[in-house]
Design a protein around this nucleic acid. Structure first.
Length: 213
DNA sequence: ATACCGATTGGCT
DNA sequence: GCCAATCGGTATC
């Protein structure tokens, strides 16, 4: 196996748009399953109309306003959990949403968590990815740079293995983001690897009747 | 206390 | 492609 090293605080303490691109090809391990990331999205804090942090700090988003390297896991549509890695400087409230990946270790566990689902769909989409990695609200606030080693709740992020060919990087508008934040000209902050079957389908945000400024 | 809505998914036409 | 499910977070009264 190629060299694999855990990513430290310094990797995450940079702008979300940078970290989101460099996370492609990285490995995320939790609860016996390891995924190679193929799709991410950047959210840039209070200045980003697509971010949960846009309206300032709330109980739910508090972890995003802290230092980089912690998990922000939120519940949506009454069914699904989505996981972010907090990035940027302390207080910047930037984060990267993990949207897609391919299982590279723990196939048996992954298959058991996704009965009746074909392998390419195990982690194709943010809600599916959290389900396959067994991540949920219990993991919000977890420090991936200093995980409680040996505990089932461990989350680790590893450097790319193998390295990603930069020519395969693609960028475009974020999925399902309503309002100005969904504008791909202003916020082309969804990143993915070309020719990967585990990348989710693009879907525009629902039209908002009244935008508030 | 109440109303509105979502960084989605799966099932059905 | 279209649409219902489902409920916590947030804003508003």
């Amino acid at each position: 196996m190629a060299q694999r090293s855990a990513l430290g605080r310094g990797f995450f303490a940079r702008p979300a748009t940078v970290v989101a691109q460099e996370l492609l090809g990285c490995l995320v391990s939790h609860a016996g399953v390891t995924v190679r990331l193929t799709e991410t999205e950047a959210y840039a804090g209070e200045r980003d109309p697509g971010s949960h942090a846009f309206r300032g700090r709330t109980p739910r988003t508090a972890v995003m306003f802290g230092p980089a390297g912690f998990l922000y896991v939120y519940f949506t549509y009454g069914n699904h959990w989505c996981v972010n890695l907090v990035t940027g400087s302390d207080g910047a409230a930037e984060a990267v949403l993990l949207r897609g990946g391919a299982v590279v270790e723990g196939h048996d566990l992954a298959a058991a968590r996704r009965p009746g689902v074909r392998e390419r769909d195990w982690c194709r989409g943010p809600g599916r990815l959290t389900r396959t990695l067994d991540l949920d609200g219990r993991h919000t606030g977890l420090d991936v740079c200093r995980p409680p080693l040996g505990e089932p709740a461990d989350v680790l992020v590893w450097s790319p293995d193998p390295a990603v060919d930069p020519a395969r990087l693609r960028a475009g508008p974020r999925v399902g983001v309503s309002g100005p934040g969904g504008d791909g000209e202003a916020f082309p902050w969804r990143f993915w690897l070309a020719d990967e079957p585990t990348v989710s389908a693009y879907r525009p945000g629902t039209v908002r009747r009244r935008s508030r400024t």
